[in-house]
Simulated scan of single mutants.
Amino acid sequence: MQFDNQVVAVTGAAQGIGRAVAEAFAAEGAKVAVVDIRKDLALEVVAGIADSGGQAMAVECNVASRAEVNAAAREIASAYGPIEVLVSNAGITRPAMLRNMADDQWRDVLAVHLDASFYWLQAVVEDMVEMGHGRIIFSSSSTAQNGSIGQVNYAAAKAGILGLMRSAARELGRYGILVNAVAPSAATEMTEKVRTDPRFAGGISKSPLRRWAEPDEIAPAYLFLAGSASSFMTGQVLSVDGGNMLVR
């Protein structure tokens, strides 16, 4: 299998895209750390992976806390060995129109997306440098490049992740560490309010495919960026958005 016994950590893996990514890696033989603030849901994902013959562990972590991120990375390394593939995917939305957005809505979204991506990057990079290889994949969004009504916080966080990704790719390539991002567009629990509220929702009817993706349609992009087929790719954004970038 493609990722036989590789150690893969996926944050925000208890539901949505993160869950689909964790399950896809496990199906390809990886030892998967299902990292989420909701350990009860993470345990359900682990049970499903085990039932399918895969290997997984549940790791409770508030990714907005550097201390919890560092503890989670140590827990994974103790159980499975150093993390070889990091998928920094955890996210939240706190939609509000610009003039009505409160400070906590701004700070919470940047903390869970941008701060957490930085914390996890630092938590895994020393082991990857020592191993001489590693893959780091961030979850961004087409919103990072096009903006989104009612989501200045989310767009800013996702754009910040792209800056973080590109800078890390420049620094870490010499150590055999590839750093990329996926910009997905999917129907998940997290995006439901934005997708359904007419104040915020984009015109999906204008999209070439006229629909949102399901999480399992997004997951293969992460496996591609973690696998041998992308061995000469770093600092790139892989858009899996049904062509939404064409029409916004």
Rank of each mutant, 00 (worst) to 15 (best):
V32Y: 03
A47S: 12
R74W: 01
G227Q: 06
S207W: 13
S141V: 07
S139N: 12
A111C: 09
D127C: 12
I83A: 15
A79M: 06
E60D: 11
L178R: 15
F25N: 10
G147C: 02
M165F: 10
L172D: 02
P208C: 08
G54K: 11
E217C: 11
N146A: 12
V46N: 05
F25I: 14
R211N: 06
S117T: 12
A56C: 04
R74A: 11
A9G: 08
T191V: 09
W120T: 13
S148K: 10
N89I: 04
M190C: 12
A47W: 03
V124K: 07
L209S: 05
I76H: 08
Q151C: 07
A96C: 04
A13Q: 02
S140Q: 02
K158H: 07
G150K: 10
A155S: 13
G147L: 08
L121R: 07
I83F: 14
G176W: 08
F200P: 06
G173R: 06
R19L: 05
A169T: 06
V125D: 01
S142D: 13
K193P: 00
D108S: 12
A201K: 14
D4R: 12
F118S: 06
D216Y: 09
G202I: 15
A22N: 09
G147T: 00
V45Y: 06
Q6C: 04
I92K: 01
Y80Q: 06
Q55G: 05
A42S: 12
P184S: 00
M101Q: 11
